[in-house]
Amino acid sequence: MDEIGKVFQNKTNIKVQYTYSGSACLLAQIDNSRQGDAYMPGEWFYMEQADEKGYLTEVERIAYVIPVIGVAKGNPKKVRGLRDLARKDLRVGIGDPHATALGKQAYIVLKNAGLQEEVISNLTTSAATVPELGNAIKLGHLDAAIVWDAVAHWYPEDIDIVLIEPEYNEVSTVPLGTLEFAEDPQAAKKFLDFVASDEGKAIFKKHGYSLTPNLEL
């Protein structure tokens, strides 16, 4: 997002200010402050909530994030799929299901596979933010964690991806929406159009996000 902000500013001379936080937290902030020009949650679900409250003026799908199992480089514990996350010899992490879109999605995926109880009781941690999981794998505190493919791409030296069985997996859409509280609706619209343009999406792709619902390795 930082890079997009810079490119956008160079093009339009409009400066973008970001507040980074979990999807639900941001929505709560919008709820309370009635401020902000645009909202980008990690999951479509939060966009629906924002829409129900009548906050949105326009929405675009920007990228897709796909749950994968992140493991240490070389997969030393030989994790092959979701079922392995119930293995007692593994230290497993997922996102907090209330605070993060990733955690919510992980619960759904595990439920699809009928593994929810087994894996949840085997958890070492549930993280309040997504990058915590990547850091914990990198530092060896976790053997495996359900993370977004994009997050795993941030650690090319330290993290390998194990695919989740497609029949259980659920791809998430990362949307961007302009808010009705926008002080300058035209500038907000320009920003939305830029991020949704090929140029904007290319920046997402560069940072590991998928532009189609299929995993691109």
């Binding site: 979990g22 639900a24 937290c25 709560a28 309370n32 907090d96 209330h98 605070a99 309040a128």
Partner: peptide, 13 residues
């Protein structure tokens, strides 16, 4: 303190 933080994270102000 972390419980209070999580409440904020999910908007239970």
């Amino acid at each position: 303190p972390t419980a209070i933080f999580l409440k904020m994270q999910v908007g239970d102000l």
